[in-house]
Simulated assay, not measured.
Amino acid sequence: MKPNFALLSKLLILQYLSALCLSQDFDFFYFVQQWPGAYCDTKQSCCYPKTGKPVADFGIHGLWPNYNDGSWPSNCDPDSVFDKSQISELISSMNEKWPSLSCPSSNGFRFWSHEWEKHGTCAESELDQREYFETALKLKEQINLLQILKDAGIEPDDEFYTLDNISNAIKKGTGFTPGIDCNKDSAHNTQLYQVYFCVDTSGSNLIECPILPRSKCGSNIQFPKF
Rank of each mutant, 00 (worst) to 15 (best):
Q33K: 07
K184L: 09
Q222S: 12
S71M: 09
T190D: 07
I180P: 00
V199S: 02
H119Y: 10
L12M: 12
K53I: 12
E159Y: 03
T51P: 00
G108E: 02
Y196F: 14
H188A: 14
P73K: 13
K50E: 05
N4V: 03
C46S: 12
L22Q: 13
H188P: 00
N75F: 07
C198I: 08
A123S: 15
L127S: 08
K150F: 10
G70S: 11
I87F: 08
L212Y: 08
G173V: 03
Q222E: 10
E89P: 00
G59V: 02
S105A: 15
S18Q: 13
C21Y: 06
S204P: 00
T135C: 08
M1C: 07
G70C: 06
C122K: 00
Y196E: 05
L63K: 02
D27S: 15
D158M: 11
Q222A: 11
D151N: 15
A38S: 15
K10L: 15
D164E: 15
P3G: 10
A187T: 11
Q34D: 08
P178R: 14
S100D: 13
F82N: 10
N168S: 15
V199W: 01
F223D: 00
D200G: 07
L90N: 04
D164V: 06
I221L: 04
Q129C: 05
V32L: 03
L146M: 10
D27Y: 06
L20V: 08
L8F: 13
N205A: 14
T174D: 04
T174F: 05
E89V: 15
S71F: 07
G153H: 02
Y39S: 12
K225N: 13
L145G: 06
S204Q: 07
